[in-house]
């Protein structure tokens, strides 16, 4: 075999091997592999509350790796057309507030869709999300200012509620002078009230004439300055949901000091 022949035959063999390798690489070297979802930051819901102020969703960015800061975003409530920008309330926490719609109190879950923007290692990132979360209806009723003079009890109820609440009555209302360990008055039995609290954040005043209460024992008709008093106000309320009414007992109380 001459050197030229050996050269040509070897070249051909090497070329064929190279071609087979290139073909095989494209045919069989798969670059598709499972995504590593656990290491990528994602958005999760921390809570959805229906309150008198509206629908408040709280979102948290779950981040197991990397150097992430959250700068904002928006979220949309599916099926209502409501969309709102998200406020950054913590390092990785965001909050969105939506105007109260009647259907929120009757929904058990809502769908939230949106985008959170932030920076990842100093460069922009966007996290898209679609979440389904249960709704919690949050109702707050409390006693605000209390005054008592001439046997007349004036109290302010502050409340925040997404649904109308009917106060049916109070039972066993008691005002105690904690400083002297004695009753100012106490009442046994029910006192019909019929006060309607409308959805939203508001306050309402209730006036009770202690002397006119049924089954009442009045010991004092005014309060002493500097003494601390406790008012117990167990009430019966009816939550008026769009589909059903729920009646429940609610015990309100307030500790207050006159003057000083």
């Amino acid at each position: 075999m001459t050197p030229l022949k050996l050269f040509i035959i070897s070249s051909l063999i090497l070329t064929v091997i190279a071609l087979v390798v290139v073909y095989g690489a494209i045919q069989y070297a798969s670059s598709v592999h499972p995504a590593t979802m656990t290491v990528v930051p994602y958005v999760d819901v921390e809570g959805v509350n229906v309150t008198g102020e509206g629908l408040i969703i709280k979102l948290v960015v779950v981040n197991s790796t990397g150097n992430l800061t959250v700068t904002g975003g928006y979220a949309e409530i599916i099926g209502t057309g409501q969309s709102s920008p998200l406020r950054v309330v913590g390092p990785l926490t965001l909050e969105g507030t939506y105007i109260l719609l009647p259907q929120y109190v009757s929904m058990s879950t809502i769908g939230i869709r949106g985008l959170v923007s932030g920076t990842f290692y100093g460069d922009p990132m966007y996290i898209g999300f679609y979440l389904v979360a249960p709704i919690h209806v949050v109702i707050n009723v409390g006693v605000g200012d209390v005054t008592y003079s001439n046997c007349l009890l004036n109290l302010t109820l502050t409340y925040s509620t997404p649904i109308p609440i009917l106060i049916n009555g109070a039972a066993n209302v008691t005002l105690v002078d904690d400083s002297e360990s004695q009753f100012v008055f106490f009442m046994i039995g029910n006192l019909p009230l019929h006060v309607l609290l409308m959805p939203g954040v508001n306050a309402t005043s209730i006036m009770i004439n202690a002397e006119e209460l049924p089954n009442v024992h009045v010991f004092q008709c005014s309060l002493v300055s500097g003494h601390t008093y406790t008012l117990y106000l167990p009430i019966t309320v009816t939550y008026i949901y769009p589909t059903t009414n729920v009646t429940a007992q609610l015990t309100l109380y307030r500790v207050f000091t006159i003057g000083g």
Binding site: M125, Y126, I127, G128
Partner: peptide, 26 residues
């Protein structure tokens, strides 16, 4: 092969547990 199958343009769109993430890092 790299430019055909492993091209990386400085950004990633990655599925996450609840959606996707778009990251752009030079």
């Amino acid at each position: 092969f790299q430019s055909r199958y492993l091209y990386y343009g400085g950004y990633s769109i990655v599925p996450t547990a609840t959606g996707y993430t778009y990251i752009r890092i030079p």
